[in-house]
Simulated assay, not measured.
Amino acid sequence: MRKMLMACVVALSVAGSVAAADRPVAPNGIALYPDYLSWKVIAPSYREDKGQIRIITGNETAVAALKAGKKPLPDGSVLAKVAWKAEKHPSFPVATEPDAFVQVEFMVKDARKYKDTGGWGFARFVGNKLQPYGKDAGFVAECFGCHTPVAGNDYLFTRMVRTP
């Protein structure tokens, strides 16, 4: 787990960023946060059904609340889930590392604006061109539907990773 976390942190540190003027916008109006790769890592994850290594990062508001154990997270909290296809290391096949970038997803907390989706706005940007996901704003039903099983945890699957 530590090796996977370190590999993902290295991948985050060398990945490029998007200039503010070039920010793509999801159909529901949420723009890509260009600094998501510089946010603090909350936790790594592995999605077996998708074969993806993911890193969840958070802005300062989200990280402070998670560290303090505050739920629900306060308005202004933003989480990013960055996903890469998992690939066996060619020289060390027992190791799995990030390969091709898949997508970045955002959860944006605003209890009033997003009251119909548990206080969270959702956005997804796919592929190297960071193409906004969804034909219209109704795509959020898919995101919210996935998160409803964890409604009692402020719709979050992720918690701060524990380290000594």
Rank of each mutant, 00 (worst) to 15 (best):
M1Q: 09
M1K: 15
K3M: 13
M4R: 11
M4C: 11
V9H: 06
V10H: 06
V10C: 10
S13Q: 14
V14K: 10
G16H: 09
V18K: 14
V18N: 11
A19V: 12
A19N: 15
A20V: 13
A20R: 08
A21C: 12
A21T: 07
D22K: 12
P27F: 06
N28D: 12
G29A: 07
A31E: 08
A31S: 15
Y33P: 07
P34I: 09
D35T: 04
Y36T: 01
L37S: 07
S38P: 02
S38M: 00
S38I: 01
W39D: 01
K40D: 15
V41W: 08
V41E: 03
A43P: 00
P44K: 08
P44M: 06
R47H: 14
K50C: 06
K50Y: 10
K50W: 10
G51Y: 11
Q52R: 09
R54V: 06
I55Y: 09
I55F: 11
I55V: 15
I56N: 02
I56D: 00
T57I: 14
T57Y: 15
N59F: 09
N59P: 09
E60L: 05
E60H: 10
T61D: 04
A62M: 11
A64N: 10
A64G: 06
A65C: 08
L66D: 00
K67I: 13
A68C: 07
K70D: 13
K70R: 09
K71N: 11
P72A: 11
P72N: 02
L73N: 02
L73P: 00
L73Y: 00
D75V: 02
D75F: 05
G76K: 05
S77H: 04
S77E: 03
V78I: 13
A80N: 02
K81D: 14
V82C: 13
K85A: 15
A86P: 00
A86I: 07
E87R: 14
K88P: 01
K88Q: 14
H89K: 04
F92R: 11
P93E: 07
T96F: 05
F101D: 00
F101T: 11
Q103C: 15
V104K: 01
E105N: 10
F106I: 04
F106G: 00
V108Q: 03
K109E: 05
D110W: 05
A111E: 12
Y114M: 01
Y114S: 01
K115P: 01
D116G: 09
T117G: 05
G119Y: 03
W120G: 09
F122S: 00
R124V: 03
R124G: 09
R124N: 12
R124D: 05
G127Q: 04
K129I: 03
L130C: 10
L130G: 08
Q131L: 15
P132S: 13
Y133W: 13
F139T: 05
F139V: 02
V140L: 08
A141M: 07
A141N: 09
A141V: 12
A141P: 02
C143Q: 08
C143A: 10
C143W: 02
C146N: 00
T148G: 07
T148Y: 06
A151F: 05
N153E: 14
N153P: 09
D154E: 03
Y155R: 00
Y155P: 00
Y155L: 10
Y155K: 00
F157I: 05
F157K: 12
R159E: 12
M160I: 15
V161N: 06
T163H: 15
T163W: 15
